[in-house]
Amino acid sequence: MARTLAMFTDTSLCIGCRACQVACKQWNELGAEAPEWTGTYQNHAHFTDQTFRLVRFVEEPKPSGDLAWLLMSDVCKHCAQAGCLEACPTGAIYRTEFGTVDINQDVCNGCRYCVASCPFGVVHFDDGSGTARKCTFCNDRIHNGLGPACAKACPTDSIQFGFRDELVAKAGKRVETLKGMGFKEAQLYGADTGGFLGGLNAFFLLLSKPSTYNLPEHPRLPQRNVVVDSLLSIGSALVVGLGAIVSFRSRGKGDGDA
């Protein structure tokens, strides 16, 4: 395996220009969609099969009564333990040698299990192609020595691309700087490989707690309970089976109590 690549989205630098969102659409040839009114400048409300990068515009009430305007360019997290990948029954979702998670469009059969299995609601079903779609981490570009289109287009370096370990180190320093500047809640999301989901290969620097950005505080791998659930099902089978055996045996001789 090659050295793990990552995208680091530093939301403190985002100016909400949406260059990433547009660059992603252009490079990946994603179609335009009718705008929707989300109550803020944000468009669309969520990822779609044609929107893999999405700038979120979050308004957080401050104690002073003002609103803090938080911007965050959101994307598939390319989880080290990815719910979508575990769920996929065809093997269409796979991990690249760089640690990113991609969907092979020729193999996907449209079952949509991955859609329900992403803890972040990233994967979206494309009715046109009948397949599941999401950010590819610009798989074609990174295999040709280029960074993802979004990172390339970002004018403020809010999206940075590079080796994961180097980016994490950089991100840690940035948090300290921001804290020194008075952003008390500045924190990394998904940088720690010992943390949730084994770490995210697209990780974030947030200026407030994750839930403010509509991110789960403690995302967990959906598949963690397969064994327990299966054992409980077997237990259920034993009880039902016993009931049936008793029933069919009890009056085995003669006509029974009728």
Binding site: S117, Q223, N225, D229, L232, S233, S236
Partner: peptide, 27 residues
């Protein structure tokens, strides 16, 4: 029963928090 286990291993809380979906479907 596997259909119950299948949906109880997704990210959706109503499907995944109960632990007994498979057992219930089986019964």
């Amino acid at each position: 029963s596997y259909t119950g286990v299948l949906i109880s291993n997704t990210a959706l809380p109503f499907w995944s928090e109960g632990r007994l979906m498979g057992a219930l479907f089986l019964a």
